[in-house]
């Protein structure tokens, strides 16, 4: 069996395990939903914590300043044993699936003797691997079991699309891609995308959580078991911050490479345009978040719009002929 075939086998295996992980994460969320009876107790724990008898809780945001709602109890939420066990199983499965996926990408790289991201199929799998790896590394430490299903599902979608629509045989690179910058620029871009993706998922959950803190639902669901909206917002901000730094580097490394390959570091080729658009949108988000009087919810909308631009950059800009520029490497 050759390496490329092994890489594909590992890819299929990782998809199977990710599917199991997705199911396990859903199963875990089902166990998280606080029972109506529990939720009162939960609310009390939360309220005590907010008083901060010895050490106050972190910087409260407007949402936290509102009168405590019955279920706005994130930090004090007591996870049931059942939910914890299911969460661990799901995490284990995710580790395994991500390891398989990373192995698949590595084997493909060895098979072709170059960084394994030279066409759309490879971009998609490598980006998915970056997301899976980033989540796997961070999940346990931060107790992000609740986030799992929102990460694993998109990974599965991307892998499915990669295999069905984008598949390209392992082959040699176009001359423009034959540069060590391919390894630097593109891998950092994937890492940035991985963090943007995590931040996007947390950001969406933040909006839902915030909404339900403002208008408490009749029946609590797993949403009420999440960390408070303020805490979700801070998490999303930190993730976006890391991603933004990585994206800044991506942009600069891309410009340096463009100078080498095309003779000019910036010429508004569509890929450059969208990389720039993403960068300015997230810079606007950073500003919004730091500006007094712009509430965090509005800033989060900007960040979510930034993620839409990330998606467009990786899909439409690569595939649709309107956007043809010099970055025609999709292999399509």
């Amino acid at each position: 069996m050759n390496l490329a075939a092994n890489a594909n086998a590992a890819l299929y295996a990782s998809m199977i395990v990710y599917t199991l992980a997705m199911l396990a994460f859903t199963w875990h969320l089902a166990a998280r939903a606080p029972k109506v009876a529990d939720s009162k107790a939960v609310a009390e724990v939360g309220a005590n914590e907010r008083e901060g008898v010895l050490v106050g809780s972190g910087a409260p945001t407007p949402a936290e300043r509102r009168p405590a709602t019955p279920y706005a109890a994130g930090p004090g939420f007591e996870e049931s044993l059942k939910s914890r066990q299911r969460g661990s199983i799901a995490l284990m499965l995710t580790y395994l699936a991500s390891a398989l996926l990373v192995a698949s990408v590595l084997m493909r790289g060895l098979a072709v003797g170059r960084p394994p991201w030279g066409n759309m199929f490879e971009f998609a799998t490598a980006a998915a691997a970056a997301v899976g790896a980033a989540y796997s590394v961070l999940a346990k430490r931060n107790n992000w079991q609740w986030l799992g299903v929102f990460i694993v599902t998109p990974i599965l979608l991307v892998l499915g699309l990669a295999l069905t629509v984008l598949y390209t045989e392992a082959g040699e690179l176009m001359p423009a891609l034959k540069s060590y910058w391919l390894g630097i620029h593109v891998s950092v871009a994937f890492l940035a995308v991985a963090f943007f993706t995590l931040a996007f998922a947390v950001g969406l959950l933040y909006l839902v959580r915030l909404r339900r803190e403002e208008k408490p639902p009749v029946k609590p669901t797993f949403i009420e078991s999440l960390p408070s909206s303020a805490s979700l917002e801070r998490t999303a901000y930190s993730l976006n911050m890391v991603a933004f730094i990585l994206w800044t580097f991506t942009l600069i490394a891309g410009a340096i490479w463009a100078k080498q390959a095309w003779g000019a570091y910036w010429q508004w080729d569509p890929k450059e345009v969208w990389t720039f658009v993403i960068w300015t949108v997230y810079a606007a988000y950073m500003h919004g978040r730091a500006t007094a009087g712009v509430d965090h919810r509005k800033s989060m909308y900007i960040a979510l719009a930034g993620y839409v631009a990330v998606i467009i950059n990786f899909t439409l800009v690569n595939l649709v002929s309107t956007f043809v520029g010099m970055h025609n490497y999709s292999g399509m």
């Binding site: 508004w268 345009v273 300015t280």
Partner: peptide
């Protein structure tokens, strides 16, 4: 903040 958002939107037609 506003100008940054505007700049990002204005850049799009060029692609």
């Amino acid at each position: 903040l506003f100008l940054l958002l505007l700049l990002s939107i204005a850049a799009v037609p060029g692609s």
